[in-house]
Design a protein around this nucleic acid. Structure first.
Length: 231
DNA sequence: TCATTAAGCGTTG
DNA sequence: CAACGCTTAATGA
């Protein structure tokens, strides 16, 4: 049902594992199982205990929450190669948002004991964690900025820049298979608004829209959008 | 009034 | 068959 991850697969989706000495890498592997989730299904709900550090093998995971009034808020999408949840595992607290599989998704789940063992014993692992947290911090600062701009193309650009981030998601490359509907779900926009904004971004030469996917020329160009004046 | 959305449907690759 | 474009009716600012 939930088999241990193979060494090959771990190498393919976990960039961090490459930097670990063989013994540590094997120890990590034996603490990771694979699990499948159907499209649209919840991986966990806000408030749930979900004490695993999680890697995306395949598919896309959406982080979202709803306010008391029922308004939906999407944070980020996590594509293949992303690892997340270190915050909640470290603090051993309930999840602060819902996790939804946007499409058929396969996850790698590392149990908390293994995570803490690496945290206590592996220099390489900690180096990865610091780099990842630092990269995320920069992303979330940008998120606040675009939240106040409330500009549809800018919001889309931000969501896509997160997905394409080479530091966090090295597996993604310059092309990402994602539908416009999924992009809309991630950025909290309708399908029409998403389509319109994507065409504007295409017009601005920051990306190319192809069937069931998005291509970018360089991550920097996407991440820099919008470049109006000095603010 | 004008803009935006979800839903349904036709087209297409 | 799924992604996308287009139309339409509802919603609301």
């Amino acid at each position: 049902m939930t088999p241990l991850i193979s060494a090959e697969r771990l190498a393919a989706i976990a960039r961090w594992s490459h930097d670990l000495p063989e013994a540590e890498r094997e120890r990590a592997r034996r603490g990771i199982v694979e699990k499948n989730y159907a499209a649209g299904s919840y991986i966990c709900h806000l408030g749930d205990r979900f004490d695993v550090w999680t890697g995306v093998i395949d598919g896309i995971v959406k982080l979202s929450t709803s306010s008391d009034s029922g308004k939906l808020i999407s944070f980020a999408g996590l594509p293949a190669g992303a690892w997340f949840g270190e915050g909640t595992v470290l603090k051993s607290e309930p999840r602060r948002y819902d996790l939804v599989a946007l499409r058929e998704t396969r996850l790698a789940l590392m149990d908390a004991a293994t995570f803490f063992w690496l945290f206590e014993n592996s220099v390489a692992f900690n180096r990865f964690l610091v780099r990842q947290l630092n990269e995320r911090l920069g992303q979330f600062i940008g998120l606040v900025e675009t939240d106040r701009l409330l500009d549809a193309p800018a919001r889309i650009a931000r969501a896509l820049a997160f997905l394409f981030n080479p530091e966090l998601h090295p597996a993604v490359g310059l092309h990402l298979a994602i539908t416009q509907e999924e992009i809309g779900l991630l950025s909290g926009l309708s399908r029409q608004a998403t389509n319109k904004a994507l065409k504007m971004l295409e017009e601005a030469q920051v990306l190319r829209v192809d069937r069931a996917g998005i291509s970018i020329r360089a991550w920097g160009e996407l991440n820099a959008y919008p470049m109006r004046g000095n603010r």
